[in-house]
Design a protein around this nucleic acid. Structure first.
Lengths: 241, 241
DNA sequence: GCATCGAGCGATACAGTGTATCGACCGATA
DNA sequence: TATCGGTCGATACACTGTATCGCTCGATGC
């Protein structure tokens, strides 16, 4: 309150609304505010003005802590990586845990699906997550570690993106899962009726439909089996009972 | 030229600049213009105003052909799928071909990496691509087709996204590939120096570094091997010489 | 104790975005 | 020939990220 322009005397003027001195600003507070916005209303709801408002601060103030909005998004992703802590001893457990943890994080923060894989992740939490994974891959040949982790990450990112994309499409039509699948009908059925996509039509109509969990795990199993076959001689992939 | 407000007579007034009657508008022309912009300057360069300008048309005109910018992006992706035509007879060839074709398309249209997996792809070209894949998977059990294709697509999307993200990061620093890897040094080396990421440091420093092609193919091989093991009894994954 | 400096803050401004609104126009119909 | 309906696009709105730059205030030097 730098200058009082209104004619009212102090005595008449009400105290400013009860804003307890907001904790001093910090990257962490900024990022937390941004994440709250994104969790609530999606990534589009994250604007510097809205973040600033949420922190009871003027927009340009944020530029003392971040250089650009991109940086804010990077910080958000890294904050999400703080929740991605794979556990386990054997390499397979660890990779599976990494995959599930990433997927879980994306379910809690759908905006993560929009950002994952979009830029190299070099933040401390992402690196720490990588460290946890790599250090549990001691029994894997050093040259194989990166390709293996990269492959699992690639699969997870792609799978999660599609999963979230589908979930949003369902939500947009206001339908639950079952009715949505049945409601690709109106469009897909019409398309299939042309007879130009016979193989696709057969599969969509006749095949068993796995749910999201099953699909994710099945793809992950494919990948882990393939990795197993190459790095430890393929015990797991041989004669599955 | 609806009304002539200036006082100049027709004879003095120059003809309008040489705009040969632009071909009548169409979704295809709009999408092509948008793709040209995106190819040249990235996805951020695609705005309805710029697209309209490129077509010598006023922005609102576009809304006669598309309902929103999102739709335009969907159309762009579907147009890109027109180039993704997997070939081959055996399921493994076809899936590999699908993967390579998708990757190739994303290399030619980097913006594709930003969009892939972001929304369900139900356009005619995407469906046709799916049909081509599925119809070549005749020897695969019908219930396994969708999960298998989904897994490959997921892997490809994630792998391509990361690949493009890295490429951009390299380009942003103005460095070629070798110097970029050596220039994670300044930052990563400093981070590793703290000793908090020993396993990661070891791998980054000691392991052989595969290039992008090798990494992509290696991950893809993992996945295809794993699929092989489950759907055809695992011949390929057993005793690799 | 006072003057001065510098850093941080933020009001303002700018160039751009997607899209709703609605008046004006023109071609086809009565 | 008059009227109607649909198309077109100018304008406007609310919003974006961020550059600029004067102001203010606290710390420092005398």
């Amino acid at each position: 309150m730098r200058s009082i322009v209104s004619g009212m005397l102090v005595w008449e003027r009400p105290e400013p609304p009860n804003r307890p001195v907001p904790a001093p600003l910090s990257r962490e507070r900024i990022v937390r505010a941004a994440i709250r916005l994104a969790d609530a209303d999606g990534l589009d709801a994250v604007s510097l003005r809205k973040v600033a408002t949420a922190l009871d601060v003027r927009p340009m103030r944020l530029y003392g802590y971040i250089a650009s909005k991109e940086e804010l998004l990077d910080l958000m992703v890294d904050a999400a990586y703080a929740e991605i802590r794979p556990v386990g001893d054997a390499w397979r457990e660890v990779l599976r845990s990494l995959a599930e943890a990433t997927r879980h994080a994306a379910h809690e923060h759908e905006w993560l699906a929009d950002l994952l894989g979009g830029r190299p992740q070099l933040g401390p939490h992402a690196l720490a997550s990588g460290e946890a994974v790599v250090s549990a891959l001691g029994d894997v040949h050093v040259d194989a570690v990166m390709p293996v982790v990269a492959a699992v990450n690639a699969y997870v990112i792609g799978a999660v993106r599609r999963e979230i994309a589908e979930r949003r499409a369902e939500r947009a039509t206001g339908m639950d899962e079952k009715r949505w699948q049945a409601s690709l009908g109106p469009y897909l059925e019409r398309t299939f009726a042309t007879g130009r996509l016979p193989a696709l039509a057969t599969v969509v109509r006749d095949a068993a439909h796995l749910d999201a969990d099953q699909t994710f795990r099945m793809g992950l199993d494919f990948l882990l089996d393939g990795i197993d076959a190459r790095i430890s001689g393929g015990r797991a992939a041989e004669g599955r009972p």
